[in-house]
Computed example of a mutant assay.
Amino acid sequence: MHTVCAVRTEEFLIFSGSRGNDIITPYPEYQFSGLSTGDKWCLCALCWLEAYRSNCVPPVFLEAANGKTLKLIPLEILISKALKNTE
């Protein structure tokens, strides 16, 4: 379930790669240019939760999260990591 819209941080990109999910390297054959710090991207709710538990979670756009996310991640946790209006 890729239902969490987040802003990539350097810390998260490294964490994701350490878990076998290299989202930095471009894969032209799949029309994927790779992600960088600051990129907005939807990610798997379970991956986001794993990053949260490992203290390397990227901030989320709470309004853009799919409601199905709440089946896996409590709203209070999402709110605690939500981007503020000024960001």
Rank of each mutant, 00 (worst) to 15 (best):
L62G: 07
P74M: 15
D39G: 05
I79F: 14
K84Y: 14
V7P: 00
A82V: 10
T86F: 14
N21L: 14
L62I: 15
T86L: 14
P74G: 14
L62R: 10
V60F: 03
W41T: 06
Y52M: 00
E11D: 07
G67D: 11
P26G: 12
T3Q: 05
P28N: 09
F15K: 00
I23P: 04
C42G: 07
D22T: 01
S16M: 01
I24W: 04
D39Y: 05
F32M: 10
G20Y: 05
L75V: 13
Y27Q: 11
A64N: 12
I24Y: 04
L35A: 07
T25Q: 09
L35E: 04
F32V: 09
G38F: 09
G17K: 04
V4C: 05
T9L: 10
F12M: 00
C42N: 08
P58V: 00
F15Y: 06
L75E: 15
A82Q: 12
Y30V: 09
F61S: 01
R19G: 02
T9S: 14
L83K: 13
N85F: 15
I79N: 13
Y52V: 01
R53H: 11
E11P: 01
V7S: 05
L35F: 07
R8M: 06
L49T: 01
K71R: 13
D39E: 08
I14V: 14
M1R: 12
L49H: 05
P59M: 15
A82N: 11
S54A: 08
A45N: 03
F32W: 10
L72W: 12
E63N: 14
T37G: 07
L43N: 05
L13Q: 03
I77S: 08
E29G: 07
C47T: 00
T86D: 15
F61M: 08
D39M: 04
I79W: 13
L72H: 12
H2S: 10
A65L: 07
A6N: 06
G34Q: 03
F61Y: 13
G34R: 06
F15L: 02
L49A: 08
